[in-house]
Simulated scan of single mutants.
Amino acid sequence: MKRSTLFLIVLIFIGAITEAFSSKARGKVFISDTIVNYFDKSGNPVKTKLESHTYQCIVPVGDQSSRFFNIVSYYTDTDSIKSFAYSRDSTVGFFGWNYVGESTVYYPNGQLKSLEKFDADGVPTDSSYYYYPTGKLKMLVTHIDTAQNPFTGSRMTKPYHLLYMDSLGNYLLKRGTGFLRLDYSDGAYFEGELKDNEKDGRWEGFNMGSRYEEQYLGGVLQSGKRFRSNGEVILYDAETKESAPILPLKLKQFMEAVYRQIDISDNLITQLKSRLVNVTFIVNKDGRLSKFKYDQDIPIKVSSAITTAIQAVGPWKPGRLQGEPVAVSYTIPISL
């Protein structure tokens, strides 16, 4: 189950170390540049298979006009399958993987852990099933339409929790009312009571190395506390729970400063498919900028000039989630 992040184009970034293998084509099915990512037990990227707990293979499938990527993960010790899905993109995006169709996840013992479905826009659809390692059903969720994404025009859905049971098969939640616990692969969790499918009362959880508590009324966050390991308590509410990175200048002044720094010849600009270039980068926990990516293939001199110009303006204040600084992806348009 995907976690919510900051908002729209400003979200927590998930990184991966990649290793490319040789290319080959098979008839009408195009397969090239398979990417392998290695991860430790906590989900952090590592460099080699030897030091990994799981590994992931990303294989392009289809022709150039309708290409998909087969995302398959394995448990390193046994080389048994951990997950299987298709995506329209070969990299983790702002909302996680942009899955299309069915996505399945398995426990190390081979039992099915989850079965989820996504429509052509990568939006969760139909019903999702979650299981215990014994094979018993843990949770059943259906996805109901709530709105239309104003940026993409795609449908937006909300999970409706039909059933949640303990490992013995006892019902803890029915039809959106009862106790619910959400567990994540990195060891984080979030648990509390739902009433008519809305969070209600006290919820507690653990992520980013510390415990937190939140108080809800009718699905609306009233107050929150994070308890850091050093004894510090951070308070937040619905308005301050998630905050985007803060630019070193006001937006208009920032963009003017960037444009003053950019020095690109007209000859290079004419080589671009579009003079509007969207650049995405990471604002790290310490405010440094890294991992610049561009939405089109552009000459290295152009991308280097834009990257240098953005970095030259100054350090940012990092985004925060529940009081903790987090690495956040940020996108800005550059018109050349």
Rank of each mutant, 00 (worst) to 15 (best):
L194A: 00
E239V: 08
G218L: 07
E242P: 03
A147L: 01
L247W: 04
R181E: 14
M255F: 13
D183H: 11
L251S: 13
N230M: 00
K225G: 02
T240R: 02
R175K: 14
E193Y: 07
L251E: 14
D263K: 15
F151Y: 15
K273L: 11
D266Y: 13
T177W: 03
T152Y: 11
T270W: 04
M208A: 12
T270Y: 08
E232V: 10
Y160S: 03
P248G: 07
S243R: 03
W203N: 00
L182I: 10
L162M: 13
L163V: 12
M255P: 00
N207F: 05
D186R: 11
G176R: 00
D145T: 13
E191W: 00
L272C: 03
G192E: 02
G205T: 04
G231T: 03
Q222D: 02
H143E: 03
N197W: 04
S243G: 08
S243I: 04
F190H: 05
D186F: 07
V220K: 15
F227Q: 01
G176H: 02
R202E: 12
M139R: 02
Q253P: 00
N207S: 14
D186A: 09
V258D: 00
R181T: 11
L247N: 01
Y216L: 05
G218A: 07
K241C: 00
D266K: 15
Y216C: 01
L221A: 04
L137A: 10
Q222E: 14
I234T: 03
D266N: 14
